[in-house]
Amino acid sequence: MLHRRIYQFFIIYLLGLLVLFSVKYLLDLSDYVIPGLEDLAQTFRTVFLRYVSDVVDTISVAVIGQVISVFMAIVVGVLGRQTTWFGSFIKVAAYNVQAYPIVAIAPIIFILFGDGFLSRLLIAAMICYFPILLSVISIMSEPVHDIEHFYRVTGRMRWQLEVKIRAFENLNKLTTVISGSATLAMAGTIVAEFIAANAGIGYSIRIALYQSDLAKILTALFLIGITLSVYQGLLEIAGYLVKKGWASH
């Protein structure tokens, strides 16, 4: 699972580089427009360690943001699963807030919380929270009649059991959404860092852009991609283990 994600990423990244290099050599572009292989290798060696630490910083924020999002989405999704006024209110609010571009909301967050850890965390959480919430609500509000019927007619149904049945029956969907939201959390953190933070790989990308240094950006993209692949792979494994563990009670 994990190694597949990693080598798939390598293929995508190498294909991307191949396209860039083909364009570069076919059109005889300078290293300023598209860096050469040597330039890229040199930059890679120079910034690798620094960027690795930046990416680790970013992914830490993204992971914490994601954990908070998942936790909150489950709480709110469970509360909002019923077809009550509150349930539909939560759905409408989630759809609306999800439609706002984060670059428009980010400045308000930075003014309120400064340009440190908290703002990055909040933006990461916001970006991945709403898609998870919508999935949780849709899963939790959809009865699994064939299983729930017995518990209902025999008066055994409690909300905990209802949530347990629906979560268990949709575990694949849930783990896919959660692992997919890792990308969103990471993207959110990077955008936040790009806009205003003082640390992380997004911040380094912004500096590289100031210096028109595409080689640094390609290095950053490589590290982001590989980290994200590993993280998503781990989430998938975790999902698989949860399912296996749950099923072996």
Binding site: S30, D31, Y32, P35, Q211, S212, D213
Partner: peptide, 11 residues
């Protein structure tokens, strides 16, 4: 920008 571009061989 110009000087950086020159350093990377931009014409």
């Amino acid at each position: 920008q110009v000087i950086r571009a020159l350093a990377k061989g931009s014409p």
